[in-house]
């Protein structure tokens, strides 16, 4: 499957269902999150995917425009290379990133991942549901992933 794509995120949603007991243990998640993937060559082909979570499920995933992003609770944005490196770390760790490649670790300094929202309380949802979001992304270990970038 190609990262990024609606199908790729939807597959993560399916894995949420398949690993429901994991998510039930971590707890309910209710928020919408945008994953922005900046293009690798600066050609203006940035892509934005909004995932909406309810309880233990991904209930909606769609590709949206840059302007639509602010409707979500928060946005995580970075270059495709960073996402790739993070996903590879998860894969190498058997479904757990190394200490340098968790969502929180990569976003705390503001680089390489920028976490933002217009409302700081919406931004704080990233913290409130952090474990669920990390488990959501950790399931990528089960997705054979190809990237729209070359080494």
């Amino acid at each position: 499957m190609i990262f990024p794509s609606v199908e790729w995120f939807a597959r993560l949603g399916e894995l949420m269902e398949e690993n429901r007991s994991v998510h039930q243990h971590v707890g309910e998640i209710d928020c919408s999150c945008v994953w922005t993937v900046f293009d690798a060559d600066g050609q203006g082909t940035d892509r934005h995917f909004q995932t909406t979570f309810e309880l233990y499920s991904l209930v909606d995933v769609r590709e949206i425009t840059e302007e639509e992003r602010v409707k979500a609770n928060f946005i995580l944005e970075t270059d495709v290379w960073v996402w790739k490196e993070m996903l590879e770390s998860i894969a190498e760790g058997g479904g757990r990133p190394d200490l340098e490649h968790s969502l929180n670790r990569l976003s705390l300094p503001g680089v390489p991942i920028r976490l933002w929202a217009e409302d700081p309380l919406d931004r704080d949802m990233f913290f409130r549901f952090n474990g669920s979001l990390q488990e959501f992304m950790n399931a990528s270990v089960h997705i054979p992933t190809t990237y729209l970038v070359e080494e």
Binding site: G27, N104, D124, M125, F127, R128, F129, N130, G131, Q134
Partner: peptide, 11 residues
């Protein structure tokens, strides 16, 4: 990480 989630609710 687990403590972080709890504190964010309080904030």
């Amino acid at each position: 990480r687990r403590c972080l989630q709890d504190e964010a609710r309080h904030v």
